[in-house]
Nucleic acid binder design. Structure first.
Length: 205
DNA sequence: TGCCAGGCCCTCTTTAGGGCCTT
């Protein structure tokens, strides 16, 4: 199997806001590497965006301006992070958000990556339509995923997103008999209309 | 920095609008 869904990098950014095109920057990146269904590595680093973050972001993330004052620059951290992710396929919760920041920050330093993204939120919407909502913290509670109670910090969110990803792979195996899904299959699953979901999963057995 | 975006999904849809997610 060339692209197993259980060998990926799960990542999460904390940022100064919602939109890199509006001037927002990354302030922290966290990631865990999953190989053959096991967590085998991690990456976490604060980074200095070059300007002060507002009080909302300080409260939302717990990351204070004082913590960023002596952090390395975004350019320095993202260069190291590009080495960490290499050509791995990538997972994030609401991946379009993290992909925009990854692309924007790597553009600044003229680097890229070889993998593709899949979105744990879109897949969770397909697999868990009865969850109260599909926020990361809600899904962690809904699936009884072990956690340390920390949310909105990059490594903590990447760790629970990784556990959610492994939980979804396990549920595909136990509830739908999809034993060894590929990354490409998970991407297709995230884009399969609800009405066609059952037939799609039946075809993967 | 500047007071914000963007992609996906659903429906009272497709010549559109609004909610969900992410910081």
């Amino acid at each position: 199997m060339s692209d197993p869904a259980n060998s990926v990098v799960v990542l999460d950014f904390e940022t100064t806001g919602l939109s890199p095109t509006m001037g927002d920057r990354a302030i922290e990146v966290g990631a865990v590497r999953i190989e053959q269904g096991e967590i085998t590595g991690s990456f976490q680093q604060l980074m200095n965006p070059g300007f002060a973050i507002n009080s909302f972001i300080e409260e939302y993330t717990g990351i204070r301006n004082g913590m960023l004052a002596h952090a390395p620059s975004c350019e320095e951290v993202m260069d190291q992070f590009a080495d960490f992710i290499g050509d791995a396929n990538l997972i994030a919760h609401n991946a379009s958000f993290d992909q925009r920041f990854l692309d924007a920050e790597l553009d600044v330093i003229g680097r890229g990556y070889g993998g593709e993204f899949a979105c744990s939120m879109l897949i969770a919407r397909r697999l868990y339509p009865d969850a109260p909502n599909h926020k990361l913290a809600s899904l962690v509670s809904y699936k009884s995923i072990a956690n340390d109670g920390v949310f909105h910090r990059a490594l903590a969110d990447a760790q629970v997103t990784a556990q959610l990803w492994l939980t979804m792979l396990n549920d595909l195996a136990t509830e739908y008999q999809v034993k060894q899904p590929t990354f490409a299959m998970m991407q297709k699953l995230s884009r399969t209309p609800k009405a066609k979901l059952h037939r799609f999963l039946q075809a993967q057995i």
